[in-house]
Design a protein around this nucleic acid. Structure first.
Lengths: 336, 336
DNA sequence: CTGTTAGCGCGTTCAC
DNA sequence: GTGAACGCGCTAACAG
């Protein structure tokens, strides 16, 4: 301990190192700082948070870091938190599993000052628990009703954007590879897709709308199911996929069946992961700035933690990114 | 607190809840467990680790979760740790930045029981600090000399495997897109590449070996540099890339220049990320089981934490996975 | 089998 | 401007 080395009292050292109550002589201050540096002193965070009841840490509940979407989200949240002197504690949840209390318990047991929830679904029991604990929280990425603060993307708009783009190229027969029902991201994108088709007066064959779960494996099964519907001549000319990674998986299935993208079938992704520009053909997708969303959410949460009123929920507007995976359907001329 | 609700003494409650010294009557035990359940009691981990000097947490120092390689590694470590009742605390380090002490400080200040280092380089100052702190540690993924315990892959073997595969297909003009010099993963794979060529008596144009950093951006620049060397007729027929994601980026450059994979140029990746099988053409790569490596490393570390002797370092053998991104060079017939 | 006491390392309040 | 005392929530020793 630094106090022993300097011969001063621990509390004096504490005052200097925490910067509180600056009523210390310049001389001792310098001496303390020097020896602290020399000894490589680090305050014991457990003891500190035990005393102060603040941990300078926020929790992030996330399904799976292996999904680049959530890795990006974490990146942004971590960056923003760090800039405010906070750390991010991760609680990864099995995506398939029911969001269980123990994931949250880990964070609360560690005394986090607030929680960022990326896994929320409507009626999520975690939300009730957070409220009961009076724990500051902000939903990120997914939303769960107007009474829970969130920072998220306007998924319905994003769904509309890609679908309109395909409509303008002349597509009329569509497939949709969806995500997990109940997740607002999945539901919103599908709703936007439907809305755009309805506005254009284009019929949709419900057998070619396949939802179920996120992830490439589901995307492969879903794409196969869509292609297996009806006669070969009725094959969709465009497939809207709920997610970049899943779009890459869908493209895999098409390639295996000898279908060319975008010549035979156009494919779209969602999120504009760095990967989307790298694959061949580069994906037409919707840019959502997950990093920025993570930052904004962390900032919003830190405001609440700091005692400010709960900020208004935010829906961020995505934008369309046209690349090489979409083209007019074979034999059609694009509408001008 | 549970003690108040039951009218018992805190230490009695503690004994029951921690399971230590089971000398308690069945009756009070039941009563304690019930009220603990009812109140949703959670022990304050800060207080506990302050008292016990164990946090049941290990730290993981990682460059960037956005890189799927490290996300996989984390997944494995987390799974193994959880099975042993431990948690994983992440310390993400800017890959470009010099591995700085503060990353480690965060973990030690939090009182982790041991550290998993995925970022180690030889002569890494972090290693000295870990030793000085007498903190149990195990290197994972990268190695840094025989005197630091590690769980890693035999990168040189992996480099040999892909290169031999390409040699057997008949390739003689090679390019190599490398990673960060000093990282044993990058250096090892390159060494294996060179060794395989030397064994086969194949000359290598050093201008077509480009190292520098990990990441798609570097891969793009490196691939362009390789293609810009010499006359068009001397273009390499195969490019070995140090990493799956970077191979996908290299393939992007080739596509932009109108070169087909594998018809004009064969490309190989490394690690066999889930993504490798998804892209088109599916990548020929080296399977390294990052998840399993993360698990093994966590297990090894937990042994050290538990007081067992430092386990022997392990090099895990990778295997070749041949997919569609490699083929005989144009105009050549494969060697039988 | 249970209660008592003490202290982990820190920050805060009050006295000097 | 600095020291002393106290307690955050918990567990480990010993007492009863």
């Amino acid at each position: 301990m630094v106090a022993d080395a300097t011969g001063l009292h621990p509390s004096t050292v504490s005052r200097i190192l925490t910067g509180a109550g600056a009523r210390t002589s310049a001389d001792t201050r310098r001496r303390v700082l020097e020896t602290a540096e020399r000894l490589g002193y680090q305050p014991n965070l457990a003891a500190r948070s035990l005393r102060t009841r603040r941990s300078l840490t926020i929790g992030l509940v996330i399904p799976d870091l292996t999904d680049p979407v959530f890795a990006q989200l974490h990146l942004g949240a971590e960056a923003a938190a760090r800039r405010s002197g906070y750390h991010v504690l991760l609680s990864t949840v099995d995506a398939a599993a029911i969001p269980c209390a123990s994931d949250l318990d880990y964070l609360t047991a560690r005394g986090v000052d607030g929680v960022l929830l990326a896994t929320a679904k409507p009626e999520d029991p975690l939300l009730d628990r957070l409220r009961a604990l009076r724990m500051p929280y902000v939903l990120v990425n997914r939303v769960a009703g107007a009474d829970h603060p969130h920072v998220a993307n306007d998924e319905e708009l994003g769904g509309r954007l890609v679908t309109r783009h395909l409509l303008e190229l002349g597509h009329r027969r569509f497939g949709f590879v969806g995500g997990m029902p109940g997740a607002s991201t999945a539901d919103g994108r599908l709703a936007g897709f439907r809305a755009a088709l309805a506005e254009a007066g284009v019929d949709l064959d419900e057998r070619r709308v396949v939802v179920g779960a996120f992830g490439p494996r589901h995307a492969i099964a879903a794409t196969e199911a869509i292609l297996d519907v009806g006669e070969a001549g009725e094959r969709p000319t465009a497939i809207v996929v709920v997610d970049d990674l899943m779009a890459i998986a869908a493209r895999r299935v098409l390639a295996d069946r000898g279908l060319r993208v975008p010549l035979d079938v156009s494919v779209t992704g969602y999120n504009d992961l760095p990967l989307a520009a790298l694959v061949e053909p580069a994906l037409t997708t919707v840019r959502t700035d997950l990093d920025g969303m993570g930052q904004a959410a962390a900032l919003a949460l830190l405001r609440v933690v700091g005692g400010e009123p709960v900020p208004e929920s935010v829906l961020r507007a995505p934008s369309l990114v046209v690349r090489a995976s979409t083209a007019p359907p074979a034999g059609a001329t694009p509408r001008l």
